[in-house]
Design a protein around this nucleic acid. Structure first.
Lengths: 224, 224
DNA sequence: TTTTTCTATATTGTATACAGTATGCAGCTA
DNA sequence: TAGCTGCATACTGTATACAATATAGAAAAA
């Protein structure tokens, strides 16, 4: 029998990785900032050993960059990177939906409920979470867990950009009608149409962030 | 200016990671085997610190499993895992080809040359390498480098299975005709057909390994 | 003044020591 | 004999000390 929950087994490197991830998302560690291992370990209250394990994990996640002998730095927000990573979602998500097949009645009901909440959301941060929740719920029964993992990885990497935009220019995109289209198609037994609508939804979501990143880049060029 | 080549900067954890990867592929570390950090560090001639960094990297790559307090073990060959990971390639590769567009004349020539070598290969290990080389060359001009990275990751994970099959039952699949179909379609300006043929090729390549894994599993059940 | 070189310092890479947890075995109980 | 309990051992998780490298600043040369 397993009495202790897996959570209670968390070791310091897990805790450190989560903490640093939050620091990056919250902007406490700025994009491009170089990290000092000693100072960061003191700040987090762990020694350098578990800290470095955490840093390596975040490098694998694509949140940090490691340069030999020069240490770790927060990966800067980069138009090309976002462009490429985000393009993976219109490839992966429809494939996952196709493999998942039609949702159950309860699942559909839940999806409509999430979408309704999203439609009435006034808080941009909540809107991002709800959108993620909707997409996760849509494909949750996909039998290919490796594909779902991949989508989650991509989502995590793009979320940083979404949150960064939200901070500088809080706007709520209206993805709810696209979501509606997907759910309608599913309800009417048109799986391929649903996949196509999902693809459209995801391509649509890219535009505002790309526009912001481009404006940001132009501005940076002017300053320099 | 950068005088030292990046290679000379390799640190011990890189070296250890590569060495362990080879040990796994070569079967020196058996699937499922639990690793002893002290013994492995002595064997590789590095201390536990860089060894553990290497082990963590291999966990991220999907070659090892880490269990808190129980250490690291070689991920066992698993039918479900292969099934799911391999299914990603017919999703990812055609998307990369579509984004890459038509190859140049020289590129086509090179692709035909690799395929000819593959057709006359008698060594299964060489055939695996040539097949990988062909697929990499096909999509190399895809502008989405994140997508290519993802394909490379998937390829690395499935290679272990290909090599394992090759060891136990050395056979050479005849993917060359499929490759031919892809190249013909490209030469004739039919990009969508080429993507479809590529998808078929990749789906075809899955079958022999799946059959072997299933036979293996059935056998294991009989023994138990 | 500007550039270059040298040196002191700061920082990362690695080894090792110690602490806490799992594991297997001996002995005990039923 | 079967199953449990407690202990000794082995192993992983973490901290820390040391070595090697990068970096910034002062002094010297142009």
């Amino acid at each position: 029998m397993q009495l202790k929950s897996p959570l209670s087994r968390a070791n310091l490197s897990d805790i450190a990785a989560n903490a640093i991830r939050d620091l990056i998302v919250d902007g406490d560690l700025a994009a491009g900032e170089r990290l000092n291992e000693v100072r960061l370990s003191e700040r987090l209250g762990v020694s350098r050993t578990p800290l470095r394990e955490a840093l390596n994990r975040l490098v694998a996640e694509g949140a940090l960059i490691a340069r030999p002998k020069l240490g770790y730095s927060v990966k800067p927000l980069c138009r090309e990177e976002f462009d490429q990573i985000y393009d993976l979602r219109p490839i992966l998500d429809p494939a996952a939906l196709k493999a998942a097949g039609f949702p159950s009645t309860e699942q559909l009901k839940r999806l409509r409920k999430i979408n309704a909440k999203l439609a009435s959301a006034r808080n941009p941060a909540a809107a991002i979470d709800l959108d993620d929740e909707w997409h996760a719920a849509l494909t949750e029964h996909c039998p290919n867990k490796a594909l779902l993992d991949m989508i989650e990885t991509v989502t995590r990497r793009t979320r940083r950009y979404e949150i960064a935009l939200m901070r500088e220019a809080p706007t709520i995109g209206l993805a709810t009608t696209h979501h509606q289209d997907v759910l309608d198609a599913l309800e009417q037994g048109r799986l391929d149409d649903a996949c196509a609508a999902l693809k459209e939804n995801l391509e649509y979501g890219k535009a505002p962030i790309m526009a912001w990143l481009e404006a940001r880049q132009t501005e940076a060029r002017k300053t320099a």
